[in-house]
């Protein structure tokens, strides 16, 4: 790294893939793959989402990445969906089967699967 300009150029290039801007049709899906998430079964969930996104032909639109712990241990495995200009959707206590439905209905169909979200699982 030679200069701040070089660093800023990388930042500006990547920024939109991490923080989806308003009006973009891209979707970012993050799966909590820290020790606690993995212990709770997050790996098969991650794999299922990657496979289903591929199968549904959403590869260009949806990026699926691993991430660290967001802190809600008892709700693991946790999957979050980021869309441009919208509040993120937090899916909790996920399984590979639930992940299939999220890909089908939310990522493809545009309609969040309300019953798997944190809002529906608070109590």
């Amino acid at each position: 790294m030679k200069s701040l300009e070089e660093l800023n150029a990388i930042r500006d290039k990547v920024r939109d893939t991490v923080v989806i801007p308003d009006g973009s049709d891209k979707i970012r899906v993050v799966v909590g793959l820290a020790t606690c998430g993995i212990a709770a079964g997050a790996k098969p969930v991650f794999n299922a989402i990657v496979d289903e996104v591929e199968k549904a032909g959403l590869g260009d639109k949806v990026s699926v990445v691993q991430t660290g712990c967001i802190g809600i241990c008892q709700f693991e495995p946790v999957v979050e969906v980021f869309e441009g200009g919208k509040e993120k959707t937090t899916y909790v206590k996920m399984t590979a089967e639930k992940a299939q439905r999220v890909v089908e209905e939310h990522l493809k169909g545009g309609k969040p699967v309300v019953e798997y979200t944190i809002g529906a699982n608070l109590n």
Binding site: T35, C36, A39, A40, C73, Q74, E76
Partner: peptide, 19 residues
Amino acid sequence: CVGACGLAPVMTINDDVYG
């Protein structure tokens, strides 16, 4: 501490975790 405190009490048998 295996760091899976949210699943307490926890034990592991080889690579399997029981919470």
